[in-house]
Amino acid sequence: MERVPILKIGDILLVSIQLDMSDQTAVQLQEDLAERIVATGCHGVIIDITALDIVDSFVGRMLSTIASISRVLDAETVVAGMRPAVAITLVELGLSLNGIRTALNVERGMELIAAARADELDHQLDDDPDVETATP
């Protein structure tokens, strides 16, 4: 069985799916990612699907599951680079990819994660009465 590599870039794990995955490879990726999130303490996951020419219900479910797992592990997931034909097909298939953040490309995905992280840190500061915040 082939395995999808996971790269760590700063605080982000980047997965670029370059092969036509078997279902088993997709399930393996789910498990590998969960382990890497915990091992690295990364707060963001980007799944680049630019090279995928289809997303069927199995891969769609895998993407949703990865997003849910990473949320539980304090990481944000962004799916980047979906092709227009894939988007059209997904909608017609009836898959809504609930709970998944998307970006047009990896760069925008990184910005999205950085912004989400900054927001979250702001809120944590606001909630903590012992911490002085910059807001007047």
Partner: peptide, 15 residues
Amino acid sequence: VDQTKVVTAASELAR
């Protein structure tokens, strides 16, 4: 788009 649709349908049915 039609290629993508028929390949996706085939993937579902093959599974």
